[in-house]
Design a protein around this nucleic acid. Sequence first.
DNA 1: TTTCAACTTTAAAATTATGGGATAGTTGGT
DNA 2: ACCAACTATCCCATAATTTTAAAGTTGAAA
Lengths: 130, 130
Amino acid sequence: MKIGEAALTSGVSAKMIRHYEEIGLLPPNLRRANSYRDYGTSEVHELRFIRRARDLGFGLADIGKLLDLWRNKARHSFDVKALARAHAAELNAKISEMEAMRDTLVLLANACNGDNRPDCPIINDLASKT
Amino acid sequence: MKIGEAALTSGVSAKMIRHYEEIGLLPPNLRRANSYRDYGTSEVHELRFIRRARDLGFGLADIGKLLDLWRNKARHSFDVKALARAHAAELNAKISEMEAMRDTLVLLANACNGDNRPDCPIINDLASKT
DNA sequence: TTTCAACTTTAAAATTATGGGATAGTTGGT
DNA sequence: ACCAACTATCCCATAATTTTAAAGTTGAAA
């Protein structure tokens, strides 16, 4: 199938498929005589793998490692688990950071009248912090 | 004072000060005869304002609006509050998304033996989702 | 058969916010 | 006068994706 159909059935846009190939995440695709890329079920399967990993927030570097582990029948599940745990830890760190931001914002917003007068604790906070 | 001192006392790097000026977040700075930028206490105050807003996760577009509101003595606190609430809502959306990712990852990782055998629920999940 | 819409190709650039480097000019103290 | 430390501008890099543009290909209708 051509790239458009592979994109539709895998959920990875044609742009991204070409991009992943360009950066080496996917092996260079064999071309038909007309220079169009040609995809089969196994390539679509790989694309789905990538999309799922992306949906879980993995960066492309990690996705490359996961693809290698997937292809490697002699892999150790230890290595996969380590990647997943490390990524979960990263997510937790970012979540904590954003929660702190949100909590501060909610506090400030709750203290703000939200009327047509200029006085505002939010602006005061932004203006006063050293 | 010169840009280096303004950077130190405001917590915004010299690179970023120049960048903010270039993209119009800050008004073009008057230059001394030697073409060096010159900053006073009010500029440093503005830089601190920007840094605090950045620490709260506001994007530069929002920071521009907040700066306008700060400068505008006839502002309505309603407008400030709306920006803060909108940003808090964005944070909440991202937090929820990342929590869902993390929870899935933790579930999968807990189900994984993490030994030297290849069998792995994490890989299976990535490979099987449509 | 011509033609036209819908595809594909490559390449380049925008996005967001920041950091890094190169090169050149300026300052200030010794 | 000299030299380290500063400043100036300009370009590049990051991460992942979208956008744009220009050019070639296909398939089917008119």
